[in-house]
Amino acid sequence: MRQYAFFLGCIAPNRYPGIEASAIKTSEKVGIELLPLKGASCCPAPGAFGSIDLNIWYAMAARNVVLAEQMDMDITLICNGCYKSIYEVNEKLKHNDELRDGVNEVLKEIDMEFKGTVDVWHLAELYYDPEIVGLKKLADSVTRPLTGAKIAVHYGCHLMKPGKERHFGDTENPMWIEELVAALGAEPVQYRNKMLCCGAGGGVRGYDLAHSLDITNEKMINLQEVGADALTEVCPFCQLQYDRGQIEIEEKFGITWGLPVLHYNELLGLAQGMSPDELALDLHAVDVEPFLKKIL
């Protein structure tokens, strides 16, 4: 069993607890134990916080990293926004002495010091990495293949971009999450402008909801073209935008899509035999039932 400090973020534990529950249970079945990162906070939100003052963003994210350093454990997480904050700040501080010294000056006030001793991973990349889990082990953990379901993938910007500061290869047409989906027995489908942003980031969801939903709506049009049964992602914030966003689109624009949106860990939970109740799928704004009917 490999152990990681599990960074929760905000939206998964506080809006979609099924993602948190399934992450813990599904990971166990493929050899990953997620341990609580006690006292962690918001990553903090890269758009909202970074826009006001990047220095506060660095310091707040560094505090979260230091909690894991104190456990002497790498961090894993399930949200792209968190990934941007925690992964990127960790990397920046490791490689930029001036920045690190500045942050440590602030952290000193709370008796903390960033040392740069741990790494940060998205849980999805641990699943994909053949040395950690790999597609085969993942497929072997499946007891209820999602056969017959056409699933579209949304990667999410902050996981993949800027490509130079990541390590996931092609950012224009990546396929590795589709491979993760296929490992569950589902059929990944391709659609136009796959890498289009969900529309929520950078504080835009709060700043101009209609603008942000118009981006979301464009994605929905492209998804409908190829008849996807569900959209999956690895980011609760994207999930919030696509799931609750569809209700808001209905309210604001009068357009109904009804496309179920599930975090990859929720899909994995279903494929490993977890029930919809164990995943709190009833908390989703868009009814997941049509999708469940396809696979159950």
Partner: peptide, 18 residues
């Protein structure tokens, strides 16, 4: 914009933006 500041306030209050 207000929403950015409100997120900051929320984190100050609870540690969480949401």
């Amino acid at each position: 914009p207000r929403n950015f500041l409100k997120t900051a306030q929320a984190i100050y209050a609870s540690g969480h933006g949401v």
